[in-house]
Amino acid sequence: MEKFTRLDGLVAPLDRANVDTDAIIPKQFLKSIKRSGFGSNLFDEWRYFDHGEPGQDCSGRPLNQDFVLNQPRYQGAQILLARENFGCGSSREHAPWALLDYGFRVVIAPSFADIFFNNCFKNGILPIVLDAAAVDELFRETLAKEGSRLTVDLDAQTVTTPAGKVLSFEVDGFRKHCLLNGLDDIGLTLQHADKIKAYEERRRQSEPWVFM
């Protein structure tokens, strides 16, 4: 996993609540057996007017110019600003894979769906929860000024606006540690292999039917 420390990036505002993982990456793209290549189909049904299929060259497809990511001012955005309950719906990790492949490293929202939130950390994406009023303010500032950027510092747990306002956010210590260092958490877990084996041994005695 690519580590995440600090990012100064262009912000794209996606002004909808309850953005679900079917919208982030529609089901036909889930047939892939790879982890990469989902970026051109991120928000496929909102980005294009036609129906997309896996493996298709998207360069000639009709674009919905009204959709935020198609507007010239948001090209190259690395920070997605979103509303409540972002990433609700299915557990598909293809959603963070698509966001990452497109170029997003940070998503800021007042709340996230649990599984999506968790999946982000496994892929070097930092999901940041800010209160609804702060997110409202960021939407206003981003829309008001073209080229609006934010600076995100994971170590300091801060988001800094162009005006110099510093917003703090919470992150679990363990997740922060893994993300700052780009750690493979399977490797970390296997350091506890002896504990896992000892636990299994106890359970084999108390609940042998689980191990049939």
Binding site: S91, E93, P96, I115, N118, I186, T189, A193, I196
Partner: peptide
């Protein structure tokens, strides 16, 4: 769970 966690459960 997500796919990274599927791998994590398989391995650990």
């Amino acid at each position: 769970i997500g796919t990274s966690e599927v791998e994590h459960v398989l391995a650990t």
